[in-house]
Design a protein around this nucleic acid. Structure first.
Length: 400
RNA sequence: GGAGGGAUGUCCGAGUGGUUAAAGGAGACGGGCUGUAAACCCGUUGGCUCUGCCUACGCAGGUUCGAAUCCUGCUCCCUCCA
């Protein structure tokens, strides 16, 4: 990884190299210099919305940036928005968010923290975890003070609110309050810097206003671009099903990365802070390197090499994988009805199983089944590897 | 408070009494070619005890030999007026 040296200007440039925006101009450098002169680490804040239970690569873009701050000796303050989650961040939403129960929030926050540690340094000197319920459960008087800092016009200026207002979609007062609460988090933890995705720009900047109103120096804001999902187009998100979760198996990570459209590769290298190979390396090999680097980060180099070997085995050499999940299927009078067996083993419907057989999408022990192979001898299937399409495998067990 | 428009399969969207499991498109899946990329070609795309049966066009009833299509009530959404 590139080194930033100890010069504040160089550090700021390093930290901002793959960021979307660093606001205000020169702000980050000033904060870095200040910290060096005072001999203290910066307090770098990131707010987590505990609505999403699992962290995926998209989240790690920001986490990775936090890690860079840590590696430069600064202190990360992770804020679990247990209280704000009861409101729901309206950013990028066209309608009101569903409200989570306290139990869900608790469970999500826990998962989140555990997974965040795969990227962050958990050294207590460099890491601090807070729940914003700690200070947001505030007296009315304090809320009044907070509410005075911002005008409705300011809030309605924000694109998503503006759009909803124009469309006549309801905006609750609670939602208007959300950015204020997030801003107050910065006051509560005395943030020097706050990170977030570009969709957070408004909230992050509002935090500056709120800090100023509370007599604090204003935080510097660093926003990271949004990582596209494995479809290469839309924002990575679990709901869109285009995510790579950081706890996913290495083979899954490899396969999914290889599915990434070529055009999206450059963005991934940049945002994930993975050194890109020379441009004259073949696209195929650049992508393999990307996949290996991602797996190395979360599972280690050995797992990465194994994942690639497994991938080559199945998709390049067209052999069956080394480890195959087993599935038990029922036989009747020594005969197995294939559509039913496929339905059981792969969790598809029988009709779909029948269709796949008819289309030549099912192999048993490497041999393609024909349209008439709807019933097979149990002996032939027991212990045999069944392949559905190109990448679904099961080893069947047929109890006698 | 008043007037009007709409709700169809994963999504978009045709269809206004009779092969309509429902046109077309998107997506997804399978096959071919590949690098599980792109592009391109072919096919499939509700379920099942599968030459048949069941379920399905917002919900509940009704008319009819027969309804997504007609009638009644209900729910939800949208537009305009106040």
């Amino acid at each position: 990884m590139a080194s930033a040296g100890s010069d504040p200007a160089a550090q700021a440039a390093f930290l901002a190299r793959n960021a979307a925006e660093a606001l205000p101009a020169g702000g980050l450098e000033d904060r870095l210099r200040e910290a060096r002169d005072q001999g203290r680490p910066l307090r770098v804040k990131l707010g987590l919305d505990p609505t999403a239970p699992d962290i995926h690569l998209g989240h790690t873009v920001v986490l990775q940036k936090l890690r860079e701050f840590q590696d430069l000796g600064h202190r990360v303050v992770l804020i679990v928005g247990d209280y704000t989650a009861r409101v729901g961040d309206p950013s990028g939403r066209s309608d009101t968010r569903p409200v989570l129960s306290a139990e869900e929030i608790e469970a999500n926050a826990h998962t989140y923290e555990r997974q965040a540690h795969r990227v962050l340094d958990a050294d207590p000197e460099r890491y601090e975890l807070r729940f914003n319920g700690e200070w947001l459960d505030m007296p009315m008087e304090q809320l009044f003070r907070l509410a005075r800092t911002t005008t409705v016009a300011q809030l309605l200026d924000r694109e998503d609110f503006a759009r909803r207002y124009a469309q006549g979609t309801p905006i609750s007062i609670l939602e208007l309050l959300y950015p204020l609460m997030q801003g107050y988090d910065s006051v509560a933890v005395r943030a020097d810097v706050e990170l977030g995705g570009t969709d957070q720009t408004f909230n992050l900047l509002l935090g500056r206003d709120i800090q100023r109103h509370h007599g604090q120096p204003e935080q510097s804001v660093l926003t990271m671009p949004i990582l596209p999902g494995i479809d290469g187009a839309e924002k990575m998100s679990k709901t869109k099903g285009n995510q790579i979760g950081i706890t996913e198996a290495p083979e899954e990570m490899f396969g999914k990365t290889m599915r990434l459209p070529d055009e999206a590769m450059a963005v991934w290298f940049e945002l994930l802070a993975i050194p890109a190979p020379a441009p004259d390396v073949a696209a195929r090999d650049r992508k393999r390197e990307l996949a290996r680097a991602i797996i190395t980060r979360f599972h280690g180099a050995e797992a990465a090499a194994a994942a690639q070997a497994g991938f080559d085995r199945v998709f390049v050499a067209h052999e069956v994988p080394e480890e195959i999940e087993e599935a038990q299927v029922a036989a009747q009078d020594g005969t197995v009805h294939v559509p039913a067996a496929l339905a059981e083993a792969f969790g598809i419907s029988r009709s779909e199983g029948r269709r796949l057989v008819a289309q030549g999408g099912v192999k048993v022990g490497g041999e393609v089944l024909g349209p008439d192979d709807l019933d097979l001898a149990a002996a032939r299937l027991d212990g045999a590897v069944v392949q559905l399409g190109r990448r679904r495998f099961r080893r069947l067990r047929v109890p006698g």
